[in-house]
Write a protein that binds this DNA or RNA. Structure first.
Length: 154
DNA sequence: GCCAACGTTGGC
DNA sequence: GCCAACGTTGGC
């Protein structure tokens, strides 16, 4: 089993939105970055776990855990001209963008803030991409060690 | 293939 | 709202 971190802006989709969703599940759509796409398409497997991270908000941080319940499949929002993430160059016969389905496993009592994570940037969380310079990916792998340590902060 | 211009991300 | 860092686009 592999571990991941998924970013979402709570103003567009928060962990509470996920908690309210039918079956506490959602399709993780709208990712339009090739590196992230590759992970969604090729590497994320059913049963993998991911931290749910709130970005671009008052207090950025990890707010809970989700499970991958369906591995990568074509992101249909790319084919919908009315969708915000529409991509006219994505061919339905050779889809360019992919998504996975995730299900809420646990919402933390309090969010583990970016501030708090940063305090371990040169220690236990040395390998956490989130803390590395210039990392803007909305999907990133998390090592088993970092996963375990972050859980101990929750 | 280079690179300038532009767009996006995301913390602050 | 600012800006650093990065990705993408398109002319050449």
């Amino acid at each position: 089993m592999n571990y991941w971190l998924l970013k979402s802006e709570p103003s567009s989709f928060s962990i509470d939105d996920l908690a309210r969703a039918r079956g506490r599940k959602t399709a993780w759509d709208g990712v339009r970055n090739y590196q992230a796409r590759n992970m969604l398409r090729d590497e994320m497997k059913k049963g993998d776990r991911a931290f749910f991270y709130h970005s671009s908000c008052e207090v950025p941080g990890i707010t809970g855990i989700v499970a991958v319940v369906r591995a990568g499949y074509p992101d249909v929002t790319a084919f919908d001209p009315k969708d915000h993430h529409f991509d006219p160059d994505s061919d339905p016969h050779a889809p360019r963008w992919f998504m996975v389905d995730v299900k809420l496993v646990r919402k933390f009592e309090r969010s583990i803030t970016l501030d708090e994570l940063k305090r371990h940037a040169s220690g236990k969380l040395k390998d956490l991409q989130l803390l590395q310079r210039g990392t803007r990916l909305s999907v990133m792998p998390v090592s088993a060690q970092s996963w375990k340590f972050i859980l101990s902060l929750a």
